[in-house]
């Protein structure tokens, strides 16, 4: 298994290089180093000398991926790309264009993202399983039919509506929770309620529907029939057998998204003013701070690949018949 993991990790390297190169090309087609300098130096009374000097200080005065002015290997190494991306592989994100240490910012902003994402995930799974179980229990009745219809309705509503309506009702009309904001420590609790509730409600539609099909698939299997034949009550069959077996696909589905929880949610974070990694990424784009964008893309890709590996491993743990190949 270790050999397998090592191989997968090695396989990740060309992918990460590709990701990096793509980000570089995309970003620098959009923004010339002059643009980056200008957005850092401000708008008024900026001279070309100031721009040149900023570029020189921040290492943006070289070609992007290929340097024709120097000889040999330097052609590839004496470039912005090489200089700024190689260090990423050691998880050294360097400093943002505005001079901040990116690793530190990430380590700080990771927590708010997690604090929102983890409860959302856990509560979401719990709620979805409960609803899906109910619907599965009453399968082929009017509860099943309307339950599914309700799910479809819920997932046909744009997430923006949930947020706007939630803020309007719970905060503005009912004064139950702060409308936005964040704090550290226990004080954070009251800020968490609204985004978590909204995210969970948003997820009910798709989640419940998916879990329902999983349950129904399990219910159709032979062992359930055997259990029933033994004279077990329907409720017990569902809880003892179906739920237990259905947890396998549910959990493997969850494992994939686990690493990406770090990245936070762009929309939720900016609507609720939560200083997480999602809003960090948006800020990076808006301020055209390339160093941040590059780091976040890299981090996102690493986490994604990590998620894939985790999934593979979890499959084999759950089902020993699957072999590493």
């Amino acid at each position: 298994m270790i050999a397998y993991i090592v191989r997968r990790l090695l396989y990740a390297i060309p992918i990460l290089i590709g990701v990096n190169l793509l980000t570089f090309v995309l970003f620098f087609v959009v923004n010339t180093p002059d643009d980056i300098a200008r957005s850092q130096l401000g708008d008024r009374r900026v001279t070309q000398e100031a721009i040149d000097s900023w570029k020189a200080v921040n290492g943006y005065d070289r070609p992007i991926v290929f340097n024709t002015k120097v000889a040999g290997v330097e052609k590839l190494t004496n470039t912005i790309f090489f200089d700024k991306s190689v260090r990423l592989f050691a998880f050294d994100f360097g400093r943002s264009d505005s001079g901040r240490d990116i690793s530190y910012d990430i380590s700080q902003r990771m927590w708010p993202s997690l604090v929102i994402a983890v409860p959302t995930l856990l509560v979401g799974i719990l709620v979805n399983i409960t609803f899906a179980m109910l619907i599965a229990f009453f399968r082929a009745t009017y509860i099943d039919f309307w339950g599914v219809v309700l799910c479809v309705i819920l997932l046909s509503i744009s997430s923006l509506f949930y947020i706007i309506a939630g803020q309007y009702l719970l905060s503005k009309l009912f004064h139950l929770v702060p409308i936005s904001g964040y704090d550290t420590g226990l004080n954070a609790l009251k800020f968490l309620i609204l985004p978590v509730v909204i995210s969970v409600i948003h997820g009910i539609g798709s989640g419940t529907r998916w879990y329902r099909t999983i349950f129904l698939e399990e219910i159709g299997k032979d062992y359930v029939r055997t259990a029933r034949a033994k004279g077990l009550g329907e409720g017990i069959v569902l809880f003892r057998h179906v739920l237990k077996n259905a947890m396998i696909p549910i959990l493997t589905g969850v494992v994939v998204v686990l690493p990406l929880l770090f990245m936070g949610s762009l929309i939720t974070e900016s609507f609720f003013g939560i200083p997480g990694l999602g809003s960090y990424t948006i800020e990076g784009i808006q301020r055209q701070d390339f160093a941040i964008v590059r780091s976040m893309v890299f981090l996102g890709s690493v986490l994604y690949i990590f998620g894939l590996i985790l999934t593979d491993i979890s499959y084999t743990l759950v089902d020993p018949r699957v072999r590493f190949s």
Binding site: T23, L266, I285, V297, G300, S301, I305
Partner: peptide
């Protein structure tokens, strides 16, 4: 796939 969609 591994580049976050929004960024791309």
């Amino acid at each position: 796939n591994s580049i976050p969609g929004v960024l791309l």
